[in-house]
Simulated scan of single mutants.
Amino acid sequence: MRRDDEGRSDDEPVGQTANPSSDGLNSTNNEAPPIQLLVRVGDNLPRVTPPGYAVATDLLAELLDGIDRPHAFAPPDRHTGLCRICGATATLTFEHIPPSSAGNDRRARSSPGLPLLTSDQPLNFPKTGWTPAQRGVGGYVLCKPCNEFVGQRYILEYGQLAAALRKQVDGAFAALGHAVGGLDLDLAGWALGDVARAGLVTVMDVAVHDRLLRRYPELTNVVRQPGTPLPSTLRLGLTVVLGTRARLSSPVCQADPDGCVVFSEAALAPFSWTLSFLEPGLRSLPHTADVSEWLHHGQNHRPIHAQLKLPVGAVVSPTPGDYRPASLIEANLPTDR
């Protein structure tokens, strides 16, 4: 059986961690709230309100409005809905999240995030409760014109850069015998604006209905009019990731005594794309490189100087934004006393 460069067989499914609703990708159970606060028992942490908490909760209430309705998050079936790029009501087409040109073209298994987040073995993919995805990780989220526009303009460059990064990461691993913590890259000659727009589409794809566009309508032009910058309160982040799992998340909040981070994520090796919301009082997601400036480049613009240090992590945890290796996660799991 042939295996790819990450050790995954052709018919071995990718584990997809999806939006943490209580009953699947498209929660319609009105008895259980789709957003739940998880508190680990026994931590003895002080109950303090972190900075930015009120801003984060108000923002999430807006971005996640309607998450308990059908077809809210990466819907797996064809339907008439709201395009995540232009906001038009249309019969939506299937979009690979992230693009199939980066290796997302194999059968996958999809699981909602909440059972994994609350499991005493969160790194083990569940034996039951998952659904098959024969075409790879994705959903019916784009109208046909937007899907074709992105495919024709941006996807080829995206796939070529993904292949080049895979080769470089594998080379570093072979030389050192372990994964590297970061890569110093010379990206001169790559159409970085096109790559970033394809990456931005992946995190727009995991929005709830059109709620992201309602708050930030400029995002349509960022995708469809190359060179248009992001709104000033948004940040596009990029991390090189290892592993065979995908992790998709609509906007979520990470809160600690230092503050709150609100972000969405679409991750599958070799890229994890994140969109951080930098409303006043909120912080940016750590362990990501800010590539928002790439969006200023026009289509097929290839800079002669482009240096970037990209962090490298793993996608093994069900927790959005967690790039720790399995060994470190397991070492920090709570144990029975």
Rank of each mutant, 00 (worst) to 15 (best):
P257W: 05
V150N: 07
P251G: 02
G15I: 01
P75C: 02
A102V: 05
C86P: 09
D65A: 07
L123T: 11
Y216D: 01
Q160M: 13
D65R: 05
A108T: 14
A326Q: 13
R3Y: 12
V201E: 06
T319Q: 15
C146W: 11
Q254N: 10
A90S: 11
V208L: 05
L123H: 10
W130S: 07
G321E: 04
K144N: 08
T49D: 10
A90W: 07
V316D: 10
G181L: 09
P286V: 07
N300I: 10
L185A: 09
C260G: 09
L114I: 05
T335Q: 15
S100T: 05
V39A: 12
P286E: 02
T57M: 14
L117D: 06
Y154S: 06
D68H: 13
G227I: 08
V203C: 03
A72L: 08
Q307A: 12
D120H: 10
V208R: 09
S22M: 06
V137E: 03
M1N: 11
T274A: 03
Y158C: 00
N221T: 09
V222Y: 10
P303M: 00
A266W: 03
R109T: 09
A88N: 14
S292D: 03
V14D: 14
C83A: 04
A162L: 05
G129Q: 11
L230V: 07
V180R: 12
N26S: 09
T28M: 03
E31A: 11
P132C: 06
P115H: 03
P75R: 01
E31Q: 14
G66N: 04
N44I: 08
H209G: 06
R135V: 07
T228K: 09
G81F: 01
G177V: 00
P231S: 00
R84N: 09
P33G: 06
A18M: 12
R166E: 13
R283A: 12
E95Q: 12
V48L: 13
T80C: 10
L82A: 10
D290M: 11
L185P: 13
P33T: 05
V48H: 11
D184W: 14
G313P: 10
S101W: 02
G181K: 12
T128C: 09
E148P: 12
D258L: 11
D5I: 13
S264Y: 15
L212S: 01
G81W: 07
A90N: 08
L59C: 11
V240W: 12
L37G: 14
E330Y: 07
R84C: 12
H96W: 01
A255I: 02
G177Y: 01
T128D: 11
P115S: 00
R214A: 10
L165I: 13
L219N: 06
W294L: 00
G136H: 02
L213E: 04
C86T: 04
A32S: 14
L123Y: 07
E31R: 15
R214S: 11
G15R: 00
G227S: 07
A269P: 12
F125W: 04
V41R: 15
P145A: 02
R245C: 10
V240I: 15
H305T: 15
D4Q: 06
W273C: 00
P115E: 03
W130Y: 11
P99K: 04
D256G: 14
L82C: 07
H296D: 09
L38H: 08
E148Y: 03
V150T: 10
